[in-house]
């Protein structure tokens, strides 16, 4: 019996150590060697969640690269930014989507809730111990499962000798669905939530990181339908913006009017809407938006009538 217990314990220990060793080594290797390449012609990147992901068709904006990803919290975008900037010195400008639904507590779910199983396998090698420990404390079992998926992802990358994250770092996502009618008023119940201090803290980290590297950083708000503001009221968002991020220029594109048929719902553009908006945005850049002294006035002046 004693021998059985010892052997079983040892077998388990060796297996756990081997798995642990793989976990550390693969994360270390990927953290050191992961490649986040952006086309040399692109000097501007756009980060954020599904709004910019579906709004900026970067094939129509020669100087910009869209690396936004749906339901990606600043917590994860920060790590992406920390990889992209050092590897792509041509990037001089960073636009970070900052809209009404990104400060609310629901975004915590994007960090450790139901979106975690999709994020952690990708970003695990880049997270530090404090962050991993926080995720574990918030949601232990899914975090363990996400780490298992992460080891599988690492294993597959290493076996395939593919440490290139370029195609995984986000990008324009098109959708052909058309919103045919206005959203029923009954569904437009204003969200009344606490703020996500964590997500806001990581937005601050993104801003500081850009500044530290001498890269221009702007917070931007992409256009949505008016209904969006009924669900995510402006007041609290503006208060947070003015209190915590008043040192960063805020470029508000919400005045750009699109039709219902340009959206798939009240906040995400479809392919047609993205095309219209991206062409306009490209013209705006070409006309000197980034050089303008009062950028918001420049935007407002160029809004289509």
């Amino acid at each position: 019996m004693k021998n059985f217990l010892v052997q079983t314990f040892l077998a388990l220990l060796v297996s756990l150590l081997a798995t642990g060793a793989f976990y550390f080594l693969s994360n270390y290797l990927i953290e050191k060697r992961a490649r986040f390449a952006v086309d040399k012609a692109k000097s501007l990147i756009i980060l954020g969640h599904s709004h910019p992901e579906m709004a900026y068709n970067d094939s129509l904006i020669p100087s910009a690269k869209n690396v936004a990803s749906a339901a990606e919290a600043y917590f994860y975008s920060y790590h992406k930014l920390k990889k992209i900037l050092p590897q792509n010195s041509q990037i001089k400008t960073v636009l970070i989507e900052c809209t009404n639904n990104q400060f609310i507590a629901s975004t915590n779910d994007w960090i450790w809730g139901d979106k975690m199983p999709f994020r952690v396998p990708k970003y695990n090698p880049f997270l530090d111990w404090e962050e991993k420990s926080m995720l574990f404390q918030k949601n232990p079992i899914p975090f363990i499962n996400a780490n298992r998926s992460s080891m599988k992802a690492n294993f597959e990358r290493i076996i395939a000798l593919n440490l290139d994250y370029t195609s995984d770092m986000g990008g324009y996502g098109s959708n052909n669905h058309v919103l045919t009618d206005s959203v029923s008023g009954d569904l437009l119940v204003p969200v009344d939530e606490e703020r996500s201090e964590l997500n806001m803290r990581y937005l601050r980290k993104m801003i500081d990181y850009c500044k530290k590297r001498g890269v221009e950083v702007y917070l931007v708000r992409s256009p949505t339908l008016g209904e969006y503001y009924k669900i995510y009221p402006n007041q609290d968002f503006q208060d947070a913006l003015n209190t915590y991020f008043n040192d960063v220029p805020f470029l508000d594109f919400s005045g750009y009017k699109l039709h219902y048929s340009d959206f798939i719902d009240y906040e995400h553009m479809n392919r047609k809407g993205a095309r219209r908006y991206s062409l306009w945005f490209n013209n705006l850049l070409a006309s000197g938006l980034l050089q303008a002294s009062n950028k918001q006035a420049f935007i407002n002046k160029n809004l289509p009538s």
Partner: peptide, 18 residues
Amino acid sequence: RWFIYVLVFMAIVFYGAR
């Protein structure tokens, strides 16, 4: 023998679905 146990264990950890 132990190498095989460890391999099977790691496969369970890596490839185990939810």
